[in-house]
């Protein structure tokens, strides 16, 4: 079964981007320290190998860059940590393209759920990695072990940065692999009178940072999208979508035909037709949220 929505990773990336942008209702410490969200899921190669932090944020005011890793399961991958430990200021300047002066100091920040914080701190301590560890509990974010290289950031997370997790912004990076609701893009396609829905095109449209995530993950998302489309066309949307495998060779991706578009309804019935697919989509999302239906991966 998928993680509950929104997942830990989705919460964290949106929270940190939102804090960097000074979103109302979020703590203002990061924006006041001059932090800006930089690259999302950007992979670069340092001396010890490739790293791909979930988010890079930097502050020219603090002359500081933070590479963030979210660890929902609390698992500390020591090989990965070793690669991060070898990242230098030169790497940040030349390979991660951190802006002027922000690369002078840097940290890897690791965020884990509270229940995993003790174990994660112990593992990091055992191998001598002094990465600042942030614990996420019900009330906020707390610096649980080690420290950042700049005092302002330590103060921000000490004793705790209060966060209302019930009202996080979630629309900056709206979807991840387990999000149930990216099938909604199909409705957008229908409204644009697209005669066909292509799994690859749909994934490209809805997956965050598509051009930056690499071919392997793109392929994974296309399969995921195809699985969802197959579910839709088999059940809630069987009057609206039909699998058109005969077109796959031409489109180079699993393809569906739109067989019933609300826009083709008479003007007096159009709103009712959209309300009908709204109900169908709600049923689909509920089903997916409860882990019923979507097959993990391959199409046919």
């Amino acid at each position: 079964m998928a993680d509950p929505y929104p997942s830990f990773n989705l919460q964290m990336v949106n929270l940190f981007i939102g804090m960097c942008r000074g979103e109302p209702s979020l703590p203002r410490a990061l924006v006041e320290l001059g932090y800006q969200d930089g690259w999302v899921e950007f992979r670069f190669t340092a001396a010890a190998g490739e790293v791909r932090p979930e988010l890079i944020m930097w502050s020219q005011q603090e002359r500081h860059t933070v590479l963030w890793e979210w660890k929902s399961g609390g698992h500390i991958d020591l090989e990965q940590m070793g690669r991060y430990a070898a990242v230098t200021a030169d790497d940040l300047r030349d390979r991660a393209f951190a802006p002027s002066s922000a690369w002078e100091h840097h940290d890897l920040g690791v965020v884990v759920p509270e229940r995993k914080a003790t174990d994660a701190a112990r593992v990091l301590a055992e191998v001598g990695f002094g990465f600042p560890l942030i614990s996420r509990d019900a009330a906020g974010l707390r610096l649980a072990a080690h420290a950042f290289g700049v005092q302002g950031l330590n103060a921000a997370f000490t004793p705790s940065m209060a966060v209302d997790f019930d009202r996080l912004p979630l629309g900056f990076v709206p979807f991840d692999r387990d999000s149930p609701d990216w099938a909604i893009a199909v409705v957008e396609y229908m409204h644009q009178r697209q005669p066909r829905v292509l799994a690859e095109a749909l994934a490209r449209e809805v997956v965050p940072a598509w051009n930056a995530i690499g071919a392997d993950r793109q392929s994974e998302y296309v399969k995921r999208m195809a699985s969802i489309l197959r579910e839709m066309s088999a059940r809630e949307f069987h009057h609206h979508l039909r699998r058109a495998s005969h077109l796959d060779g031409r489109t180079h991706t699993p393809t569906w035909e739109v067989t019933n578009n609300p826009l083709e309804s008479g003007t007096d019935r159009r709103s009712a037709a959209f309300r009908d697919i709204q109900k169908r989509a709600m049923r689909l999302v509920e089903r997916l949220r409860h882990g019923q239906g979507v097959l993990p991966g391959t199409d046919e």
Binding site: R21, E23, D37, V40, P169, F172, A209
Partner: peptide, 17 residues
């Protein structure tokens, strides 16, 4: 408009709600 902008393989979010 909240959208992704790319610089080679780097993705950065632009726009604010």
């Amino acid at each position: 408009r909240v959208r992704w902008e790319y610089d080679d393989s780097r993705a950065r979010l632009r726009g604010t709600p």
